[in-house]
Structure formats: structure tokens, C-alpha cells
């Protein structure tokens, strides 16, 4: 494990303009072939959402406020999920500097999910179905996972790869803003910014340096690639 990872791809989420609308949640499900599990299974906490919008209440009536925080895999530089996988299904990408999940290696020990402090990993407890013709909208770029396999947010790695291939074919670098994961693309308020952290001039790098920025559970030393910009201000 590297001592301090510089990071390549990263994300900034501005909580001041996140409206909690959940467009990112549905966009992610449509892009990544995420199955729906039904009322009883979601009630057991077996929902497959790769991204969730946490709503926290602050204060008591009438001085009460809601804070929204979209949480997905934080693509840690030092990821607690990685060293516990006995079969190297959960591993670090040397080129993209994100956490990969290799579905056909996964044997379903769920050690990684137990070790993830962000509760970002989702397990396929069953084989879920898209009754025909609902399966017609499945994205051909993303594997449909079967029972017994762990899965999580990939930063839409299929989109990253496609943009990198196109850029390589044209003999250039990927342009800032060229890659957008499904959540950032759908977000009506542009609260999610995605791009290269290794380019100090990129939009995401600049936003990540904001003094409003903070990382989730950073004290654990996980080196998350997602920065949250705190919202709220008094009238002045």
C-alpha cells in the first residue's frame, strides 16, 4: 500500500446546492444495471443503491434543518476493503487509482463490506430479475452481476475508459469535463463535480481546495477521493 496516494480521478460534492432530489440515485441505477429488490428486502437493508442521499435532521422544531449528503464509494487511496479480500476481487487500480471490484473473482465472503466505514458496498443476496422486456434497457458496457457477488460504485469506470480510449486514439489527454459519471451528469444543480485530481487546474481540483471542503472519516487515514463542501450560511 502506498503511503500517500496522489490520486487521479476525484469528486467534489457541494452540499450547499445539493437539493436531495435523488436524480443521481436513479441515474446511477440506470447506467450501472443495478437491480431493484422490492419493499421487504430494502426494509432489511438489502437495497442495492450504489449512491444514497443521506438526510440528517439538525435541531428541533421549529429551528430544524435538513442536510443532504450523497454518499457512494469514496475510492479510498488506502482502502480498508482491499487488504481483507482473500481472493483479490477488491483491489486497487494502478492506472486509475480507484478501487475495482472484479465480479468473477468475488466469492462472497463480505469481508470488504464489513470493513468499509462508509457502508458503500452492496451484496447480491439473490439473483434479481428484470422481467422481459424490462431487460432491454440494460447497459451493454456494464456487467450484470449474479447472486453471491459484492458490488459498489465504480466512478462509472466504463465511461472513464471510453473517454481515455477516444483520447488515446486522437493522441491527446482527456479534457477536463469530458468524463462525467451518471450521477454528476444528471445532477440538476451541478452539485457533483468530477475530474482529474492530478491536474491542479481542473475544476474538481480547484473545488477540492475550497475552505468549505472536508472528507468523510478522514481521521481513519483512508485518503478518500471525494470531498464534501459544507453548505449553509447566515444572511450577510
Amino acid at each position: 500500500m502506498a503511503a500517500e496516494e496522489k490520486g487521479k480521478w476525484g469528486m467534489v460534492i457541494d452540499q450547499d446546492i445539493c437539493t436531495g432530489c435523488n436524480a443521481c440515485v436513479v441515474a446511477c441505477a440506470m447506467e450501472n444495471n443495478i437491480p431493484f429488490v422490492g419493499e421487504d428486502e430494502t426494509a432489511y437493508g438489502r437495497g442495492m443503491h450504489w449512491i444514497r442521499v443521506e438526510r440528517q435532521w439538525e435541531g428541533h422544531f421549529p429551528e430544524v434543518a435538513a442536510v443532504y449528503q450523497p454518499v457512494m464509494c469514496q475510492q479510498c487511496g488506502r482502502a480498508p476493503c482491499e487488504p481483507v479480500c482473500p481472493v483479490f476481487a477488491t483491489l486497487h487500480s494502478e492506472t486509475e487509482h480507484i478501487n475495482l471490484q472484479v465480479y468473477n473473482r468475488c466469492i462472497g465472503t463480505r469481508y470488504c463490506a464489513n470493513n468499509c466505514p462508509y457502508v458503500a458496498r452492496r451484496f447480491n443476496w439473490f439473483d434479481y430479475e428484470w422481467p422481459a422486456p424490462l431487460d432491454n434497457h440494460l447497459n451493454p458496457d456494464v456487467t450484470v452481476r449474479g447472486r453471491g457477488v459484492m458490488e459498489k460504485c465504480t466512478f462509472c469506470v466504463q465511461r472513464i475508459k471510453r473517454a481515455e480510449d477516444e483520447a488515446a486514439a486522437e493522441g491527446r489527454e482527456v479534457r477536463d469535463g469530458e468524463v462525467q459519471p451518471a450521477c454528476a451528469q444528471a445532477c440538476p444543480t451541478d452539485a457533483i463535480i468530477f475530474g482529474r485530481l492530478d491536474d491542479p487546474e481542473s475544476r474538481v481540483s480547484k473545488a477540492a481546495r475550497s475552505k468549505r471542503g472536508e472528507r468523510l472519516l478522514e481521521d481513519l487515514g483512508t485518503q478518500p477521493k471525494v470531498t464534501y463542501l459544507k453548505g449553509g450560511a447566515r444572511y450577510d
Binding site: V26, L134, D135, A186
Partner: peptide, 18 residues
């Protein structure tokens, strides 16, 4: 402006609904 809401995203589930 290039954006959609949650309902817009799920349009394909209406199209291919069994």
C-alpha cells in the same frame, strides 16, 4: 440544460415495462 430529474431518468422503465 443537460440535466434530468429522477423521474426523467426512469423513463426507460416505462418504455420497457412488462
Amino acid at each position: 440544460g443537460g440535466k434530468t430529474c429522477a423521474r426523467g431518468q426512469a423513463t426507460v422503465e416505462g418504455l420497457y415495462n412488462p
